[in-house]
Design a binder for these strands. Structure first.
Length: 899
RNA sequence: GGGCGGUUAGCUCAGUUGGUUUAGAGCAUCUCGUUUACACCGAGAGGGCCGGGGGUUCGAGUCCCUCACUGCCCACCA
């Protein structure tokens, strides 16, 4: 045999991926078949492949491939997301490195830079996906900011505006001072951090009294326009309707009473800074307090602050504390822990800020999206994820979605302003038309208008993804009618709100308009029927794998080291739906960074090697024209029965998205049953095998490759072709999913007895240090079962081969110098050539006897219970009776052995 | 503060409507083996009062209550 002993994935992977592309294996176009559609969650266009991607995309690929093999028209639509804030931040950073500030450029110049960046890095992640084996229809690759998609996004905006669900207003919003844009509530991540709580005194005007307030933000004192206490807080009753003097700026502001104030917290007195705190803003509104905004967009203090102008808020805080100390107004400083909101993208501490933004009213959209899942139009896997979805979308929790962003990279909001009026339209021309009509001034020009400077939140375009990738809003709905609603969405639960909920909203909002009432009545409006939530990939300390922590292995390095099939095995073997995955890539104890190692992926790599060598073994045999032996036939019957059983397991696991179960069933069947039992059984001494046995073996192995193909596409394709060419000389792609046949349960039981016997003999040899391959004679005590067993086809031959027996016969009594043990309910005697430690053997048997007697008591107690016998289902009682009989049989055998 | 989930072998997890052994898998561990398809291997072994307590039931890892620990989501405590 000249072929190498180890599997080399590299050459195989490249060859077959190209083969699939060449044969348009992943292409899909509407036809008569049932569609199976997944819109790939678009990765960030400038991103690189990470562990979370590999988990999600492998799962999708496995599901797609299986569907395709089952004869469905499988369509996996790939694409990338423009990721406005993330990408813009990268471009800004790159420009800064060149000494250019964003403000030095015009919008057009900046976008030119951004597109250049996108063109340079935009394709990388999709190429990496191909290395992973992802079989998407690349001819359908979309980008959320390409013209055709942007057009649909603007159309959606206009429709929402016209239906009265979009509005523009000045609200307290979350401001990211680093990206200098507003964020939606979902983009703010709150974590507990240590902060200082400063107690500062405010003099009550016209008295010598002071009220002490507690604040964590002394730098905003200059923006204070009030002081609040609880109306029933008796400590402060005497000051009601008086004023206090704000320190530093010496401004006189009113003392107001408000239920919002917690009597217990701090000193029970609260400074009110309406411009820089959501709650203060609301208190201010209730009491008509002035709003003084002392912060610039970048978080530095402006002229209105009077002090520390130009300093960043953090710096100004230090300055303010120092100054308050000097004036004696700072009473004390306490440490406490409180939640701090940071920008999901830039990690900057978010600043509450009053800004003018576009909001999408969630009232109707959220109710619809909630009902869609509640009513079962859409199924979540695991179903428990609905709880999270529900809590988010309930009317009392949902808040309007701020959709505008102060960025340039994205779809510019299609709103034009003229003389205080807003004109929303897909194009400037249409807006102009509207304005001319409205004003009656036909001389109006586009240049008279001011278009909204802001762009839309990235998630606004993502929300339209299942419709827009099919150009659903551009008039020609051929694709949409065939593929919509899509079959499945596979994504992480962490973006359930960002994305899943919003796709559902937009799906229900827009599909009917595009597809018509009759169509949606028949097919539904939902963007997908099932959602399969994958878990987060975590490190050994259960932390989410993130770039900043450096706790994630490098995806490319893993692929290089273990091969795509190996990595896919590693990802899928731990991919139960919804469960977070503690990925086994160890951290370097010195640096705390991830090492690019994984035992699970290595297990996958070794599995590839096992398959490779099993195939090598088969390919090395010479087929001869002779009748198969009885043992070969029985073994093949058994293998086929086990295969059918496994197909059933795999199918049912797939149906519930239990991908790791499906994979483990196959792993155990192929490695354990096929390699360790079956191949050892039929392995010919002389390398010659009957053609019919060979054909049955390769046919079964071929089906194993087919079943495993969704998980490990490359090596299975490779081996499948080698098997095919041997049988039929064909060269085609894996294209059929095996069917389970009815199998003989008795055969499985008989074979299990054989396995028990063989293991028993092996154990007997081991425990007494007997050579494994020295032929020994074995006797079964004569019984109805043992007689039937020995006369069963090939039983004796198979047992002799696997257990290295010289003979296997029946005996009425225990032969001399023999070692007795139980094979299930049968007594077996192994003849030894050396003396036996009788005492030790007796002790072993007595221990077992004791255990069995205890067990029997339990069963008999159960069976003696009238309420069990009459109350439990018949088959349960029958099962207990069988257990009772078997145990009695075993006990009898042991007692006989012990004499 | 409100809500959801988890707690089963050293580790990561299965355990489907209570009833197939006195609870399984993979990995890890230990022992033995290897000119044998594969040391990227084979064979064998050890290892768990299913977080604690109480209850329902003929029967509980599975259902109920309670406590403990833990993870997550949501929420305006300055």
């Amino acid at each position: 045999m000249s072929s190498p002993k180890a599997y080399n994935s590299k050459d195989v992977e490249q060859r077959w991926y190209q083969h699939w592309l060449d044969h348009d294996y992943f292409r899909s176009a509407p036809d008569e078949r049932e569609p199976f559609t997944i819109c790939m969650p678009p990765p960030n266009v400038t991103g690189v492949l990470h562990m979370g991607h590999m988990l999600q995309y492998t799962a999708q690929d496995a599901l797609m491939r299986k569907a395709r093999m089952e004869g469905k028209n499988a369509c996996w639509v790939p694409g990338t997301d423009h990721a406005s804030i993330a990408t813009e931040a990268k471009v800004v950073k790159k420009l800064r490195a060149k000494g250019i500030k964003k403000s030095d450029l015009t919008r057009e110049e900046f976008l030119k830079e951004a597109f250049a960046w996108k063109d340079e890095y935009g394709g990388i992640i999709l190429e990496q996906l191909k290395l992973l084996g992802a079989g998407a229809d690349w001819s359908r690759t979309r980008f959320t900011m390409e013209p055709k998609l942007s057009k649909q996004v603007l159309k959606a905006f206009v429709k929402l505006y016209e239906s009265g669900q979009l509005y523009r207003g000045k609200r307290m919003t979350n401001w990211d001072p680093e990206a200098q844009t507003v964020l939606s509530n979902e983009e703010v991540i709150y974590t507990d951090e240590n902060k200082n709580l400063y107690h500062v005194r405010y003099q009550v005007e016209g008295t010598e009294d002071y009220i002490v307030i507690a604040t964590s933000r002394p730098e905003t004192i200059m923006a204070d326009t009030g002081l609040a206490v609880h109306p029933s807080d008796e400590r402060y009753t005497k000051y009601h309707s008086k004023n206090v003097i704000v320190p530093l700026v010496n401004r006189s502001v009113p003392i107001v009473t408000d239920d919002y104030v917690e009597i217990e917290f701090g000193t029970g007195a609260l400074k009110i800074t309406p411009a820089h705190d959501q709650n203060d803003y609301e208190v201010g509104q209730r009491h008509g307090l002035e709003v003084i905004d002392i912060l610039n967009a970048d978080g530095s203090l402006n002229e209105l602050a009077q002090f520390f102008v130009g300093q960043d808020r953090e710096e100004a805080r230090v300055s303010a504390v120092k100054k308050l100390k000097e004036t004696g107004d700072l009473i004390e400083t306490k440490q406490y822990r409180t939640s701090v909101g940071r920008s999901e993208r830039t990690d900057a501490v978010v600043e509450p800020r009053l800004t003018l933004q576009w909001f999408l009213n969630m009232e109707k959209l959220a109710a619809t999206a909630l009902a869609a899942v509640k009513d079962g139009d859409i199924d979540f896997h695991p179903a428990g994820m609905f709880n999270m979805y529900n809590s988010w979308l309930r009317p009392e929790n949902v808040r309007d979605w701020c959709v505008s962003r102060q960025l340039w990279w994205g779809q510019q909001i299609p709103a034009w302003y003229y003389e205080g009026e807003t004109y929303v339209a897909e194009t400037a021309e249409q807006a102009l038309e509207k304005a001319r009509k409205k004003t009656g001034n036909s001389d109006l020009q586009i240049t008279d208008f001011q278009q909204d400077e802001d762009v839309l939140d990235t998630w606004f375009s993502s929300a339209l993804w299942p419709i827009s990738v099919f150009d659903g809003m551009l008039g020609d709905t051929t694709d949409l009618e065939y593929y919509y609603p899509t079959t499945l969405m596979v994504t992480g639960w962490d973006i359930m709100f960002f994305w899943v909920a919003r796709m559902v909203m937009f799906g229900y909002e827009f599909s009917e308009g595009e597809l018509g009432v009759d169509f949606v009545a028949e097919h539904g409006k939902m963007p997908f029927k099932d959602v399969f939530y994958t878990g987060m990939v975590r490190d050994e300390k259960r932390r989410k794998m993130t770039k900043s922590l450096g706790n994630s292995p490098d995806a490319m390095a893993l692929l290089e080291r273990y091969g795509a099939d190996g990595v896919r095995f590693g990802m899928m073997s731990s991919a139960a739906a919804g469960n977070d995955i503690i990925f086994d890539a160890p951290l370097d104890p010195k640096t705390g960074k991830a090492k690019n190692e994984s035992k699970l992926c290595d297990q996958g790599r070794r599995f590839c090697n096992k398959l490779f060598n099993a195939n090598r073994l088969l390919q090395g045999w010479e087929q001869v024209e002779r009748s198969p032996t009885e043992a070969e036939q029985v073994a093949a019957d058994w293998l086929e029965a086990r295969l059918s059983q496994t197909i059933g397991e795999v199918n049912s696991a797939f149906a519930d998205y239990r991908l790791s179960d499906a994979l483990m069933s196959l792993y155990k069947f192929i490695w354990g049953d096929f390699c360790s039992w079956y191949l050892e059984l039929i392995k010919p001494e002389d390398g010659q095998i009957s053609r019919s046995t060979y054909d049955r073996t390769t046919a079964a192995f071929e089906q194993m490759m087919t079943l495993l193909h969704p998980f490990m596409p490359f090596i299975t394709e490779e081996i499948w072709h080698q098997l095919r060419s041997r049988i039929e000389g064909e060269d085609c792609v894996v294209s059929t999913w095996p069917k389970a046949n009815v199998y003989d349960a008795d055969l499985l039981n008989r074979f299990e007895l054989l396995q028990t016997l063989v293991s028993g003999v092996r154990e007997a040899r081991k425990s007494r240090n007997l050579p494994e391959r020295e032929a020994l004679n074995l006797y079964f005590r004569r019984s109805a079962t043992s007689e039937a067993l020995l006369s069963a086809p090939a039983f004796s031959a198979m047992a002799s081969k696997l257990a290295y027996l010289g003979s296997l016969e029946l005996s009425d009594a225990q032969p001399n110098n023999s070692l007795a043990f139980l094979v299930k309910t049968e007594a077996a005697y192994l003849i030894l050539n050396e003396t036996i430690d009788v005492a030790a053997e007796r002790e072993k048997m007595e221990t077992e006897l004791k255990r069995l007697r205890g067990f029997l008591i339990g069963i008999e107690k159960k069976l003696g219970n009238e309420r069990f016998v009459s109350g439990a289902p018949e088959e349960v009682v029958a099962r207990e009776r069988k257990k009772q009989a078997d145990t009695q049989e075993k006990i009898g055998q042991l007692e006989m052995m012990l004499g």
